[in-house]
């Protein structure tokens, strides 16, 4: 009789790395479909190219580094999907491939593969593209012609809601919520993102602490120190619309840009966020403050990517600061 000998425990939970990644992919599907709906067939093409090149680069780089093949853990698919969601629809296709190459080869595999990258690969690639191709990465278009048209002449260039907040062209909150606005492919449809996020939370894939702290901190800062803030508010609070005006700016700022996508899907990336609940709150609050500062005082409207990547870099330190005491550890003179 041949018996298997292994260390206890001898039963394991069903969840695997692969099943977690699959859950993330499922959660990203609503927002991806919404992006395809709003931006047309070119968005589909960008998504497919991004995912395919991430998988190919993962395969090739693992092969060259003589490591085992890790495509089946689906993490490359997640990176590809997230990268595509963070790109404008008009981006030349070769730039998508360059972005995927940077995300997988430079950020992920050169640091040791899944679990060892110190920043989120999709965000790092996005920032790389913003710096390398600033014009292409910040030209926002909305579809004007047929859904099936690849021609960029059918798209009209537009400013994102963030740059138009205090103009008369600012879209309504409802339009921001359903996604009828300019922006990256995956970030526009807030309702679809929230459905995906709810799925992740209910499946216990992510915990809500980082998004809650992130969005909460940002909304609070926008409420207190925004352009029309609680201190300089001149409206009439005796009528309902006055209250609407009071909260308008902070709601508008939360719903526009990549904040919801970033808070629920990028900041919660396991590898680059802290381990403990306390650490997750600190991480979220830090992201919120940085996003506020960059959006209001920086010269780039988009603060989400930079704030998340900066907090990614701080994560090992946050882990060190928040390492708790073991169960039962008490101060010397504390009474039992």
């Amino acid at each position: 009789m041949k018996l298997q000998v292994s260390h206890s425990p001898h039963v394991r939970d069903k969840a695997t790395t692969q099943s977690i990644m699959l859950d993330v992919i499922i959660a990203l599907i609503p927002a991806t479909l919404a992006g395809w709906y709003y931006f047309g067939i070119r968005a589909v093409l960008i998504t497919l190219i991004s995912v395919a090149s991430c998988i190919i680069f993962e395969y090739i780089s693992r092969r060259i580094m003589k490591r085992n093949n890790t495509i089946s853990d689906l993490s490359a698919v997640v990176t590809g999907l997230l990268l595509a969601m963070n790109l404008p629809v008009s981006l030349p296709l070769y730039m998508v491939v360059i972005g995927a190459c940077f995300a997988i080869v430079v950020v992920k595999q050169m640091f040791g593969g899944l679990g060892n990258n110190f920043v989120n690969p999709a965000i790092a690639a996005r920032i790389f593209l913003v710096i390398a191709f600033p014009k292409a990465m910040t030209s926002w278009t909305v579809r004007s012609g047929s859904w099936f048209s690849f021609d960029s002449a059918d798209a009209v260039s537009s400013a994102t809601p963030l740059t138009r907040i205090h103009t008369s062209e600012a879209p309504s909150l409802w339009k921001l919520f359903i996604g009828d606005k300019a922006g990256c492919i995956g970030e526009v449809c807030i309702i679809a993102l929230l459905i995906g996020a709810l799925y992740l939370i209910l499946r216990h894939v992510i915990r809500p602490w980082i998004p809650v702290a992130y969005i909460g901190t940002f909304a609070l800062l926008a409420f207190l120190f925004g352009k029309t803030n609680v201190f300089n508010f001149a409206g009439d609070l005796t009528v309902l619309s006055g209250w609407g005006d009071l909260f308008h700016e902070c709601c508008y700022m939360v719903l526009s840009g990549g904040l919801i996508l970033g808070a629920f899907f990028m900041a919660t990336d396991y590898v680059t966020s802290p381990l403990t609940t306390k650490g997750k709150f600190i991480f979220g609050i830090g992201c919120g403050i940085l996003t506020f500062l960059i959006r209001y005082y920086g010269n780039m409207a988009e603060g989400v990517s930079f704030s998340i990547i900066l907090m990614n870099i701080l994560t090992p330190h946050i882990d060190n600061w928040t390492m708790g005491k073991p169960f039962g550890e008490v101060k010397e003179n504390a009474k039992v």
Binding site: Q4, G115, Y270, S273, L275, M323
Partner: peptide, 29 residues
Amino acid sequence: EETTLPPESPCIRCARCVASCPMDLIPCG
């Protein structure tokens, strides 16, 4: 049917070990 020994894969820092530890330790660390 009960005997499985899945291969180890890299730690993805999901913190499930941290959340499950009754002694409040950080097993992955």
